Computed example of a mutant assay.
Amino acid sequence: MPANNVVILVDVQNIYYTCRQAFGRNFDYNQFWKIATHSADGSPRKVVKAIAYAVDRGDEKQKQFQNILRAIGFQVKLKPYIQRADGTAKGDWDVGITLDAVEYAAEADTLVLASGDGDFGILVQRLQHKFRTRVEVYGAEPLTADSLIAAADQFVAIKPTLLL
Rank of each mutant, 00 (worst) to 15 (best):
residue 64 Q to H: 09
residue 84 R to A: 11
residue 56 D to M: 04
residue 61 K to N: 15
residue 58 G to R: 02
residue 84 R to Q: 10
residue 58 G to V: 04
residue 61 K to G: 14
residue 70 R to F: 02
residue 70 R to M: 11
residue 75 Q to Y: 04
residue 74 F to T: 00
residue 78 L to I: 09
residue 72 I to N: 00
residue 76 V to N: 00
residue 55 V to W: 05
residue 82 I to G: 03
residue 76 V to K: 01
residue 81 Y to P: 08
residue 67 N to W: 08
residue 65 F to T: 10
residue 64 Q to W: 12
residue 62 Q to F: 05
residue 59 D to N: 13
residue 56 D to P: 05
residue 63 K to C: 04
residue 59 D to H: 14
residue 81 Y to E: 08
residue 60 E to L: 12
residue 84 R to G: 07
residue 78 L to V: 13
residue 71 A to W: 09
residue 81 Y to C: 09
residue 62 Q to N: 09
residue 57 R to W: 12
residue 69 L to E: 01
residue 64 Q to P: 05
residue 56 D to S: 10
residue 73 G to K: 02
residue 84 R to H: 12
residue 69 L to P: 00
residue 75 Q to V: 10
residue 78 L to R: 08
residue 81 Y to W: 13
residue 66 Q to S: 05
residue 84 R to K: 06
residue 62 Q to Y: 05
residue 79 K to M: 14
residue 60 E to Q: 15
residue 79 K to H: 06
residue 79 K to I: 11
residue 63 K to I: 08
residue 82 I to Y: 07
residue 57 R to Y: 09
residue 64 Q to T: 10
residue 60 E to D: 15
residue 74 F to M: 00
residue 83 Q to S: 07
residue 68 I to G: 06
residue 65 F to C: 07
residue 60 E to H: 09
residue 62 Q to T: 10
residue 79 K to Q: 11
residue 66 Q to N: 08
residue 71 A to E: 15
residue 63 K to L: 13
residue 59 D to R: 09
residue 61 K to A: 14
residue 76 V to Y: 00
residue 66 Q to H: 12
residue 77 K to S: 05
residue 63 K to D: 12
residue 65 F to V: 07
residue 72 I to K: 02
residue 76 V to M: 01
residue 83 Q to G: 06
residue 83 Q to I: 12
residue 82 I to L: 11
residue 55 V to H: 11
residue 67 N to F: 08
residue 76 V to P: 00
residue 84 R to E: 07
residue 68 I to R: 15
residue 62 Q to V: 03
residue 82 I to Q: 06
residue 68 I to M: 13
residue 58 G to D: 04
residue 63 K to Y: 06
residue 59 D to C: 06
residue 69 L to M: 02
residue 56 D to I: 03
residue 58 G to F: 05
residue 84 R to I: 03
residue 63 K to F: 04
residue 77 K to Y: 04
residue 74 F to D: 00
residue 68 I to L: 14
residue 68 I to F: 11
residue 57 R to T: 14
residue 80 P to I: 10
residue 69 L to Y: 01
residue 65 F to E: 12
residue 59 D to K: 12
residue 62 Q to M: 14
residue 64 Q to V: 10
residue 63 K to G: 07
residue 81 Y to V: 10
